[in-house]
């Protein structure tokens, strides 16, 4: 599903964020990406949804090489992956329903398809009864669930999560994790960067630890391995 070959990333300001990474993630896997701040975790994640382009090496997702894909084809690559963030990135002027529908409007889906799919995913994240609410009327956990609904509404093959529980209290974090697990159970590959020791150590999955731009550890059912 996701293959990285000898990937390097040096930023224009000289910072060497990723220094030769090889990784293989199969379809349907659930992977935690852990590591200290500034170790290259964020760059690693950003390269997966082609927010950053590798300086060297290949990143192949679903048969397409992100390192070589043309600028104007990036939108089509992104349609096959969902991304969620620590700060949710919802549009404040749109309702829950509209925020989720937005991702489908962009790919020019029909109104009836949009209606059906959006109500469907809102059910998955248990927000069907709040479809008409605006983001500011929701709790943090609810907002993240809207973001998840938006990320999966186009049935992507991969869900990329950049510290999805970073802004949430423990109970809410677990709520989010159960939803992510459920999505993973339905066959979506999930890659999640996190600082949450408790989650990683409790809900055991494959752990990739990144330190100084290299893979320091890659274990199935691994541990968080850092103090915090």
């Amino acid at each position: 599903m996701i293959t990285m070959n000898e990937v390097w990333k040096t930023y224009p300001n000289g910072v060497m964020a990723i220094n030769g990474i090889d990784v293989d993630i199969s379809k349907g896997e659930f992977v935690y990406v852990v590591g200290p701040s500034g170790a290259g975790k964020s760059t690693f994640i950003k390269m997966m949804y082609r927010e950053e382009k590798p300086t060297r090496g290949d990143i192949i997702i679903d048969g397409k090489n992100l390192a070589k894909v043309k600028e104007r084809h990036i939108p089509y690559i992104r349609r096959n992956m969902g991304v969620i963030f620590q700060d949710f990135k919802l549009l404040p002027g749109l309702t829950v329903y509209e925020n989720v529908a937005f991702a489908m409007e962009v790919i020019e889906e029909s109104k009836s398809n949009i209606r059906r799919r959006v109500m469907n995913v809102l059910e998955v994240v248990h927000l069907k009864n709040k479809a008409r609410f605006y983001p500011h009327e929701l709790s943090g956990g609810e907002q993240q669930r809207v973001a998840i609904a938006r990320a999966i509404v186009n049935s992507p093959a991969v869900l990329i999560a950049d510290e999805p529980t970073g802004n949430l209290d423990p109970d809410t974090s677990w709520e989010i994790m159960h939803i992510l697990e459920e999505i993973n159970d339905r066959g979506t590959t999930v890659v999640m960067a996190t600082h949450n020791k408790e989650i990683v150590n409790t809900l055991r999955k494959r752990v990739i630890a990144i330190e100084s731009g290299r893979i320091a550890r890659d274990e199935a059912r691994g541990e968080y391995g850092y103090e915090r």
Binding site: I77, R78, R79, L90, L91, R150
Partner: peptide
Amino acid sequence: KREIQIMKLVGATNGF
């Protein structure tokens, strides 16, 4: 800007 960024993340083309 945020709106544009989100549009790009969910796969909107520049034309769109």
